[in-house]
Design a protein around this nucleic acid. Sequence first.
DNA 1: GTGAAAGCGCTAACAA
DNA 2: TTGTTAGCGCTTTCAC
Lengths: 353, 353
Amino acid sequence: MFKQAKSATMEDVARLSGVSIGTIDRVLHNRKGVSKATRSKVLSVIEKTGYKPNINASLLSNKKTYKLIAIIPYFQKGDYWEMIYDGIMQSNEKNKKNIEIDIIYYNQFDVDSFQKACLHALNFEIDGVLIAPIYKKEASFFIKTLSEKSIPVVFVDTKVDNCEYLAYYGMPLYASGYLAAHLFFNEKEIPELVNFNVDRDGAAPNESMIKRTEGFMGYISDHNIKCKIFDYSMRPYDFMYNIHLFDSFFSEHPNINHIITLNSRAYIISEWMEMRGIRDKKLLGFDMLEKNLDGLKKGFITTLLTERTATHVEKSMQALINYLVINQKPAYKDNMFPIDILNKYNVEFYKEF
Amino acid sequence: MFKQAKSATMEDVARLSGVSIGTIDRVLHNRKGVSKATRSKVLSVIEKTGYKPNINASLLSNKKTYKLIAIIPYFQKGDYWEMIYDGIMQSNEKNKKNIEIDIIYYNQFDVDSFQKACLHALNFEIDGVLIAPIYKKEASFFIKTLSEKSIPVVFVDTKVDNCEYLAYYGMPLYASGYLAAHLFFNEKEIPELVNFNVDRDGAAPNESMIKRTEGFMGYISDHNIKCKIFDYSMRPYDFMYNIHLFDSFFSEHPNINHIITLNSRAYIISEWMEMRGIRDKKLLGFDMLEKNLDGLKKGFITTLLTERTATHVEKSMQALINYLVINQKPAYKDNMFPIDILNKYNVEFYKEF
DNA sequence: GTGAAAGCGCTAACAA
DNA sequence: TTGTTAGCGCTTTCAC
């Protein structure tokens, strides 16, 4: 019924074009040394026959090892960035050969370190780059250098405008903040809520958080919602500080029962709630960190907005590889991950499989 | 950094085992004609070297064309089963060669037709089967016949117990009903609601709907919820009947503002709501049918619980192929799809990419 | 029971 | 500018 019409091979194309298979290869890869006439002849035959490269054969015969560089923040176990790392490693697993992936880490709180990472990358003979471009201006400069060398770039997490790039994969940030607000305010009035963000100690503003906040506020203004919002900052690495922050805030505002955090650190709050035995507050957070999932399962986090980061990062690496190996661009340049809504009752099925 | 340790090839294994590459192949594929001693020697070398087959080479050199059969209900455009079909076709697209997929359709409302489909499948030389086994008893018999011939079977949608099978891919049904109830009853009291199911005209009971209903009722009883539930049946192919059903029901029960449907036909209700200009009722339904998505975007459907069916069906076909081509079983036998919660504000990002 | 060798479709090095 | 050819790792046929 649906037997694959055994598609034309390079040899078929060669025969029909009256040239040799080597020339077909040259045309397919835009290599130089083919006359205009021959090239257009070959292209028309390719068109006519509907020739599609066989990626198996391609990968098998390819002697070249592609060197890919991933530039991402370094992280502690359980951080958001670990999921990005996992995706890279998973992709690495699956591409047995021909692909070598190096990760260059930078300190997300330090521009200099980001810049150094980029410069360092330029020391190698690289074929493609995957980058989480936290520092836009600096990234922009780096990307332009890569463009000149025709090295493809894929963005994850956030992207840089006014740059050439192969693809971008990330969560729709504004929409995710908007959705968060919807889940809170839909069908009920909330006079006051508290938003805990993360103190970045004067370093890089967190673009994700900013855009999510815009989305959240956008919903409130679009729907004429009256709600007083308290803003506080947690310190991810200062346990006592956070405890004290929560203790004192909620003793002053015992009636506030709705908490959001537009970053990945919801677990800091849920662990405090667990410690204090607090079960009457609604907490909404982001990202599928182990500790967040834990808080969700135990009922301290009410809702988690997430993406299947690792799976998606795998796709973004694959985009790079497909481009390099069979010269195929991804179907869409900008790819927005679905925003999954997780709660106690569906979380268990979100293991990536 | 992460250069792939170029893994051992069959030739390496052959050399280290002191036999030829042909023998390695025999061992790897459990073909006969290998002495016990040789086989165990080879296996130990495979173990030691961590040999992993190269699926590229395998697929490339494989002359055999695998014939796969998918047995699914036939459908009208926009039905649930079309998504299953799409997944099969997508998988077909990606497997350029060596794989031929035939679909045998049956009438989901007719046992006989199901049985005929199964029997028909046995007429061919088949290598693998993907089946939506609506009729358990009849399916069970068929599956057993396949087992005897060592033909691998993958279930989609629902599965058959007490049968050998390679894998099952489906939505966790009880949990999805439970979740539906949670989304409705969480944080608010609903004294009455109406559940519209589908009249199957005496034919096969719909297992999905039954299990979802159990889940829904399970939540209600677990949480001591008081709610009067009205049950009615729509007729998918009788437009006027449904209009009349809704008109008369809601004129008798004007205060009922919560509607569920534990099947894929929410759009029948949302289209009625749109026609009547009704915007004050909450409607919860299942499955990512075009028309459901439409109802969601327009705001008539409040929530849709869905799975990425096509993507998941692709995985299930891939499981079959990996088993046949490189003798690799899927990591998990039973694979539960995540239950995605969709609403107006995240639906647009759920296009499969 | 086992080995040898051709060939799958493509790449890349070398030759012309 | 173009053609030829040796592999990539595996399957399969045929020979021993």
